Simulated assay, not measured.
Amino acid sequence: MPAAADGFRMPAEWAPHERTWMAWPGANDTFADPATLAGARAAWASVARAVRRFEPVTVVCAPGESAGARALLGPGVETVERELDDAWMRDVGPTFLVDGRGGLAAVDWTFNGWGAQEWARWDHDAKIAAYVSDLAGARTYTSPLVNEGGAIHVDGEGTVLLTETVQLGPERNPGWTKERVEAEIHAQLGTSKAIWLPRGLTADYPPLGHGTLGHVDIVAAFARPGVVVVHAQQDPAHPDHEVSREIIGLLGAATDARGRRLEVVEVPAPTVLEADGRWADYSYINHYLCNGGVVLCAFDDPRDETAAEIFGRLFPDRAVTLVDARPVFTGGGGVHCITQQQPRVG
């Protein structure tokens, strides 16, 4: 029986958290050279410390890596050890659910290395969701859908954002129809309406880097029911200019599960167009909401403060913390990609 049938649903990210889960970067194809790995670990630690100001943080480390991780993470951040392939807890970790009666559950999606990409390894990461769910004391529901946490975003009131190139891509779910995907998503998350985006940002696809083939959490996210923040690439020279225009138009015409027309808040992309010799997918949308805080990607860019002001207006009761996310984006993600919330129950 799926999770929703037992009364569980995925709350919005702004709902209170019990803690945040992360995973510690190790030597792999994503962080192939020592300098890149060192930069990634420093960036992951900065995010963990920023989140720890607001709520507990637990970091899953590969065996033998905890001591070195704690030296960078600093006091107050917990570590546990488990075999890992990579460090993207949003995607390999569980999607937590609540039932409103004190119950905690989690969906363990099928994970296949973001569409069985040639650089990915997932023998260990495919087991992390069940491991974290067990540590959290959650009831685990296993889904046959190949999916990741960065590929969904919910408003807590029945609406979920999805991307056609992810859940419907042949790399993940060959033969699945849109109706079948929606049925499985709703059955596990307790949602009732899916809003589909056609694709993600340009650099999220091969051969430009370690991409996800179009995760939604770098493009659009709910800020509250009826309101979405959307990546707005304003420079026509960047291919994401047309991508973001299409998505902004689509979301502006969409209604949510309650029948509300969505209010779209455009968040200008950073001014930099290229990074590491390729189109940049730097995005402020890939932020993380924690108890009393917004941890926001920064890029040493003039638009950093503009984004901080936008998020400050959207979340006036939360402190906005900017963290340099460039080393995270070098690996193929952002602040949201490396964090996973465990909601508070009761």
Rank of each mutant, 00 (worst) to 15 (best):
residue 254 A to R: 07
residue 255 T to I: 03
residue 256 D to Q: 12
residue 256 D to F: 06
residue 256 D to N: 13
residue 257 A to K: 11
residue 258 R to K: 15
residue 259 G to W: 14
residue 260 R to M: 10
residue 261 R to W: 10
residue 261 R to D: 13
residue 262 L to R: 13
residue 263 E to Q: 15
residue 263 E to D: 14
residue 264 V to E: 13
residue 264 V to I: 14
residue 265 V to G: 15
residue 265 V to C: 14
residue 265 V to A: 14
residue 265 V to W: 11
residue 266 E to Q: 15
residue 266 E to T: 15
residue 267 V to T: 11
residue 268 P to K: 00
residue 268 P to Q: 02
residue 268 P to M: 02
residue 269 A to N: 07
residue 269 A to L: 06
residue 270 P to E: 07
residue 270 P to F: 02
residue 270 P to Y: 04
residue 272 V to E: 13
residue 272 V to M: 03
residue 273 L to C: 02
residue 274 E to A: 00
residue 274 E to V: 05
residue 275 A to R: 01
residue 275 A to N: 00
residue 275 A to F: 02
residue 276 D to R: 02
residue 277 G to N: 00
residue 278 R to L: 02
residue 279 W to F: 02
residue 281 D to I: 05
residue 282 Y to T: 00
residue 283 S to G: 04
residue 284 Y to H: 06
residue 284 Y to R: 04
residue 284 Y to S: 04
residue 285 I to A: 09
residue 285 I to Y: 06
residue 285 I to V: 11
residue 285 I to P: 07
residue 289 L to K: 10
residue 289 L to C: 11
residue 290 C to E: 12
residue 293 G to P: 14
residue 294 V to P: 09
residue 294 V to S: 09
residue 295 V to Q: 07
residue 296 L to H: 06
residue 300 D to A: 09
residue 300 D to K: 05
residue 300 D to N: 10
residue 300 D to M: 01
residue 302 P to C: 01
residue 302 P to V: 00
residue 303 R to A: 08
residue 305 E to W: 02
residue 306 T to E: 13
residue 307 A to K: 05
residue 307 A to F: 01
residue 308 A to Y: 08
residue 311 F to M: 04
residue 311 F to Q: 03
residue 311 F to D: 04
residue 313 R to G: 04
residue 314 L to T: 02
residue 315 F to I: 06
residue 315 F to K: 11
residue 317 D to Y: 10
residue 317 D to S: 15
residue 318 R to Y: 09
residue 320 V to L: 07
residue 321 T to L: 14
residue 321 T to F: 10
residue 321 T to S: 15
residue 321 T to W: 06
residue 322 L to V: 08
residue 323 V to I: 07
residue 323 V to G: 06
residue 324 D to R: 03
residue 325 A to H: 01
residue 325 A to D: 01
residue 325 A to T: 02
residue 325 A to W: 02
residue 325 A to L: 01
residue 326 R to M: 04
residue 326 R to D: 03
residue 330 T to R: 15
residue 330 T to D: 14
residue 330 T to S: 13
residue 331 G to Q: 10
residue 331 G to L: 01
residue 331 G to R: 08
residue 332 G to K: 12
residue 333 G to V: 03
residue 333 G to T: 08
residue 333 G to L: 07
residue 334 G to M: 09
residue 334 G to Y: 08
residue 335 V to K: 12
residue 335 V to L: 13
residue 337 C to F: 08
residue 337 C to I: 07
residue 338 I to G: 10
residue 338 I to W: 05
residue 339 T to F: 10
residue 339 T to G: 10
residue 339 T to W: 08
residue 339 T to Q: 10
residue 340 Q to A: 14
residue 340 Q to C: 14
residue 341 Q to C: 11
residue 343 P to A: 12
residue 343 P to K: 09
residue 344 R to W: 06
residue 344 R to K: 14
residue 344 R to F: 05
residue 344 R to N: 11
